[in-house]
């Protein structure tokens, strides 16, 4: 397919992404593309350090209240957590493929893959909703709101504080990610992306992979080892 795109020469090539022009302050398209990607990588750094604070809290309180963490983590549903892991990895996979099809000028395929990614993200949130409502029903809430009585260990509330903060902030990132994916899906429908210009697809993809990456750590830490 890409060979076909490359075969399109001169005049025909300008039909790809007709709205795209290199911004006046960049010398060429490659510079603009690289600048955007560097910007996104720097942004991902800030995301890592934002979550980092919670990982730090997790490490400290786990070492302080190990029995509480072990007992509390048994109240998380690892089947639901596992399903969400697979859902998120799949969405990462389709997102990566969406970038690839955008690179290859396969507009319809890009749309389809983005739509699947969006569906996976929605499914992730639905599962999360059932998990949350179950926790709230059982009184497994953070700190001062913790009401479940049948706990032998001392500080399960701290575990749930970290659980809700981590998964909550992660969930907000999923919602933001859905907005971004929807945005590029609509732009793709308007023929904006092609092998000439697909930077927004790639950059939203990078963000989406980071959301997956954070979950790759959250799942074993919270659901499996506690």
């Amino acid at each position: 397919m890409s060979a076909k795109a490359e075969a399109l020469g001169g005049a025909e090539e300008t039909k790809l992404s007709p709205q795209f022009h290199v911004a006046h302050h960049f010398d060429k398209a490659d510079t603009q593309f690289d600048a955007g990607r560097m910007g996104v990588w720097l942004f991902l750094v800030t995301e890592i350090l934002l979550f980092g604070g919670l990982f730090c809290a997790f490490a400290i309180f786990r070492s302080k209240y190990f029995p509480s963490f072990v007992e509390a983590h048994h109240h998380l549903d690892r089947v639901m957590g596992g399903i969400n892991t697979i859902v998120l990895i799949s969405s990462s996979f389709t997102m990566a493929l969406a970038v690839r099809s955008a690179q290859k000028n396969e507009k319809k395929k890009t749309t389809l893959l983005l739509a699947i990614t969006l569906a996976c993200a929605a499914m992730f949130l639905v599962v999360k909703y059932f998990e949350y409502s179950h926790k709230i029903h059982d009184g497994l809430l953070p700190g001062g709101n913790f009401t479940a009585a049948d706990f032998a260990s001392g500080h399960p509330g701290i575990f749930f504080a970290i659980y809700f903060m981590m998964t909550g902030i992660h969930g907000v990132h999923v919602v933001i990610g859905m907005g971004l994916i929807l945005w590029i899906l609509l732009r793709n429908q308007k023929n904006e992306f092609s092998s000439r210009y697909y930077a927004p697809v790639e950059n939203v993809g990078l963000y989406w992979h980071l959301v997956d990456l954070v979950w790759i750590y959250l799942f074993p830490l919270l659901y499996l080892v506690g």
């Binding site: 603009q32 990895i89 990462s92 996979f93 493929l97 690839r100 092998s195 000439r196 930077a199």
Partner: peptide, 21 residues
């Protein structure tokens, strides 16, 4: 001066996906 994408073969993606699962 157009940007030229760097396209990976499909099997790389499938391989990565199966590794992750």
């Amino acid at each position: 001066g157009d940007h030229v994408p760097h396209v990976l073969p499909f099997k790389v993606y499938i391989g990565t996906f199966s590794t992750l699962l």
